[in-house]
């Protein structure tokens, strides 16, 4: 990867990676740190990275950095650990995105990751498997579970109905 190609990667993917991490960590400074670390690693290894596969590499590095940070900060918030009120919140919401964000935060981290990679970046199951180090079938199962959980959440708050 040349310097110009690296700069193109920064222009194309920095904001995408930032959004992807921010959606999961909910902390802009940490998300920013992860993006910067990611591109620093890419810069250091630019000789061995091809431009065609750089996007996947960037997301993989960012995802692993995020996992490390979650482990470090113990920010894992499982569905079972959430208070009951968050599951059945009957407040009225004007913005669907806001509700979806809340629904997303109820998902386990791995389901959150695969859904966001699928929806935000349009990755195939195979590519998501490469990034998250999962099998294609596992990715599919996680996405199915995530969609079901999201649907149940949306129905439970009676927003749509």
């Amino acid at each position: 990867m040349t310097v110009e190609e690296f700069n193109t990667c920064v222009r194309m993917y920095s904001n995408r990676v930032y959004r992807f991490i921010l959606k999961q960590l909910k902390d802009s400074s940490e998300a920013k740190d992860i993006v910067q670390n990611t591109f620093e690693k890419v810069w250091n290894k630019r000789e061995s990275i091809k431009f065609e596969t750089s996007k996947q590499y960037i997301f993989t590095v960012a995802y692993r950095d995020m996992l490390n940070l979650i482990k470090k900060n113990s920010k894992v918030m499982l569905l079972e650990q959430l208070p009951e009120t968050s599951k059945t919140d009957s407040r009225s919401y004007s913005d669907l995105n806001e509700i979806l964000d809340r629904a997303l935060s109820t998902l386990p981290p791995i389901q959150r990751t695969v859904v966001l990679l699928r929806d935000y970046e349009g990755y195939s199951y195979d590519e998501i498997g490469d990034i998250t180090d999962l099998k294609e079938s596992q990715v599919k199962v996680y996405i199915h579970r995530a969609r079901k959980s999201l649907k149940n959440y949306l129905i439970s708050i009676e927003y749509i109905l």
Binding site: R16, R19, K32, N97, V115, L116, D119
Partner: peptide, 11 residues
């Protein structure tokens, strides 16, 4: 349940 990326969020 499909997420649409919020382009307004930028680093």
């Amino acid at each position: 349940t499909r997420f649409i990326p919020d382009e307004t969020i930028a680093m």
